[in-house]
Simulated assay, not measured.
Amino acid sequence: MANIKSQKKRAITNLKRNVAKAGEKTALKTAIKDVLAAVAANDKATATTALNKANSLLDRAITSHIKHGNYVARQKARLSKAVNSIQA
């Protein structure tokens, strides 16, 4: 542990942010898995709503610096392609 007061505060703040970002990462992964599960079940309505939620979380991941913009673009394209492949 650091001896300087500002560094002690920074260490505590870093732990808090780490926990918060871990929750956001988990929610993002779960949303992506929900889309893929709905696609596997051939449920277009559920897949569409899950895709909208996943897209929202992916966009938020860019602004909070959790994921890179290219990763988000690739995932959005991949999930959209999967949902559009469902035969209604």
Results as ranks from 00 to 15, higher is better:
21 K>F: 08
71 Y>E: 12
37 A>W: 14
14 N>E: 13
9 K>F: 00
62 I>Y: 09
10 R>T: 06
44 K>E: 13
80 S>K: 00
5 K>W: 08
45 A>S: 05
45 A>K: 02
59 D>S: 11
81 K>F: 11
25 K>C: 02
73 A>F: 04
74 R>P: 01
11 A>T: 10
47 A>L: 03
6 S>T: 07
23 G>T: 08
47 A>P: 00
54 A>H: 04
44 K>D: 07
54 A>Y: 00
71 Y>Q: 07
86 I>Q: 13
40 A>S: 09
6 S>H: 09
74 R>M: 11
23 G>S: 14
10 R>G: 00
5 K>G: 15
20 A>Q: 14
56 S>L: 09
7 Q>A: 14
87 Q>D: 09
37 A>G: 08
63 T>L: 10
11 A>L: 11
42 N>R: 10
2 A>I: 06
49 T>L: 03
58 L>H: 03
14 N>T: 04
33 K>P: 09
72 V>Y: 06
3 N>I: 10
64 S>A: 05
70 N>Q: 14
1 M>Q: 12
61 A>C: 10
47 A>K: 01
50 A>T: 01
58 L>V: 03
67 K>D: 04
85 S>W: 05
61 A>M: 03
1 M>A: 06
67 K>M: 08
37 A>N: 13
84 N>K: 11
80 S>D: 06
33 K>D: 13
18 N>S: 12
9 K>Q: 08
88 A>C: 04
48 T>F: 00
79 L>Q: 02
58 L>K: 05
68 H>D: 12
28 L>A: 04
67 K>T: 01
75 Q>D: 11
18 N>M: 08
73 A>C: 05
31 A>P: 01
4 I>P: 04
73 A>Q: 11
52 N>S: 10
47 A>S: 06
33 K>A: 06
71 Y>D: 11
34 D>V: 10
54 A>D: 03
56 S>M: 07
32 I>K: 01
6 S>D: 09
53 K>R: 03
77 A>S: 09
54 A>Q: 00
18 N>L: 11
38 A>E: 00
46 T>Q: 03
